[in-house]
Amino acid sequence: MRPIVILAAPFSGASWLAGVLGTLHGACAVPQLFPYLADNCGELMEIFRLGQDEHGDGLLRLVGQLYCGGQDSAAIARAQQWLQAREQRSVAEVLDEIAATVAPERLLYADCETPLRPIYTRRLLRMHPEADLVHLVRHPWSQGCRFAAWLRECIFVPTDFRDYALFPPCPDPQIAWLRANENIERLIAQWPADRVHRVRSEDLDHDLQGSVDRLAMRLGLSGRVGDPSRWPYAQRGCREAPGGLEADVWADIPEADERLATQLSMSAPLPWRPDGASFAEEVKALARRYGYE
């Protein structure tokens, strides 16, 4: 069965959308798996081990849930062993095994890491050319306000999320927004048009059931939207694998930043920048293509 992959810039609501679509008939929504960081399963596990984030937690929780009796500490330990036994296999083979387990439902997952690097999007194209791609976009202002609030609390901010025209270099969410969406655009230019589906998070906010109905019809899913909080991965996991969803699901965004995120603008000074600059012209041009004014 063809997988469904939701691609988006960070803090666009991709994991939330996966949980919503997972309440429909025909989809098995799973946590973020980050499968396109490596070709080989052993290499992928090593990247997870060396990383400073929770990138490996979603795959561990999924394997624990499907094959090891749940998501508690003992199940996560067995999930580690399950993956170690497949270290010599390709990531595509492991995903195919998981997809066969959940069939006839289609494997569905969000991915906000793959769009940040062309090497990852090329791996997606090579590994799953049959997939349906859902391109989720969010207004760069609301995405930026929430992302900036989260970045303020981070000890480590990736160097390529900073604007080095300023001193000291300033974390700037529009960099990730532009890079991710441009890389997705390049990828979907190589994809069959009937397997590319774009949705704006604002349309979901305005008319969730109607927007999901239209998307579901194109994806071959059916049913009414259920309660995504009942999704097995909706809450934090055990100590050994607490993550699995994008940070914006659990981020504690201050109320002032949430209010600011609703005051959409394409020309106002960006509140996270100290120099009073507004969006770069490239960001404005791409946002207009998505219908944002």
Score class of each variant (00 low, 15 high):
residue 25 H to Q: 10
residue 18 A to D: 02
residue 18 A to K: 06
residue 44 L to G: 06
residue 32 Q to T: 11
residue 22 G to I: 06
residue 26 G to C: 02
residue 3 P to M: 12
residue 35 P to N: 12
residue 27 A to K: 15
residue 28 C to E: 10
residue 17 L to F: 08
residue 32 Q to P: 00
residue 5 V to H: 08
residue 12 S to R: 03
residue 29 A to Q: 07
residue 3 P to E: 07
residue 3 P to I: 11
residue 12 S to M: 04
residue 38 A to Y: 02
residue 45 M to H: 04
residue 39 D to I: 07
residue 5 V to T: 12
residue 23 T to A: 05
residue 23 T to W: 06
residue 28 C to Q: 08
residue 14 A to I: 14
residue 12 S to C: 13
residue 32 Q to A: 01
residue 33 L to S: 11
residue 8 A to C: 07
residue 21 L to M: 15
residue 5 V to N: 10
residue 7 L to C: 01
residue 19 G to R: 15
residue 28 C to L: 01
residue 10 P to L: 10
residue 11 F to R: 15
residue 17 L to R: 02
residue 21 L to F: 11
residue 11 F to H: 15
residue 38 A to P: 00
residue 16 W to E: 01
residue 13 G to C: 05
residue 9 A to M: 07
residue 7 L to I: 01
residue 4 I to M: 09
residue 8 A to F: 11
residue 28 C to P: 00
residue 42 G to Q: 12
residue 38 A to S: 03
residue 42 G to I: 14
residue 40 N to E: 15
residue 45 M to Q: 15
residue 8 A to W: 11
residue 12 S to E: 03
residue 36 Y to D: 01
residue 33 L to Y: 09
residue 45 M to S: 13
residue 24 L to Y: 05
residue 41 C to G: 00
residue 41 C to W: 06
residue 34 F to T: 06
residue 23 T to E: 02
residue 25 H to K: 13
residue 13 G to K: 11
residue 38 A to N: 05
residue 30 V to D: 02
residue 14 A to E: 03
residue 15 S to K: 09
residue 19 G to W: 11
residue 4 I to A: 01
residue 42 G to K: 04
residue 45 M to R: 15
residue 4 I to E: 01
residue 26 G to I: 04
residue 31 P to R: 15
residue 39 D to F: 10
residue 6 I to T: 14
residue 36 Y to I: 01
residue 4 I to L: 08
residue 28 C to H: 13
residue 29 A to L: 06
residue 40 N to W: 12
residue 17 L to H: 04
residue 17 L to C: 06
residue 19 G to T: 09
residue 12 S to Y: 03
residue 30 V to L: 09
residue 36 Y to K: 00
residue 13 G to W: 09
residue 43 E to Q: 14
residue 35 P to G: 13
residue 33 L to W: 12
residue 8 A to P: 03
residue 30 V to A: 02
residue 11 F to A: 09
residue 31 P to W: 15
residue 12 S to H: 06
residue 38 A to I: 01
residue 5 V to C: 05
residue 34 F to L: 11
residue 21 L to R: 03
residue 41 C to R: 05
residue 15 S to P: 08
residue 14 A to Q: 06
residue 24 L to A: 03
residue 21 L to C: 12
residue 15 S to Q: 13
residue 13 G to N: 13
residue 32 Q to M: 03
residue 5 V to K: 03
residue 19 G to A: 15
residue 5 V to M: 10
residue 19 G to D: 10
residue 36 Y to Q: 00
residue 33 L to V: 07
residue 35 P to V: 13
residue 7 L to A: 00
residue 32 Q to L: 06
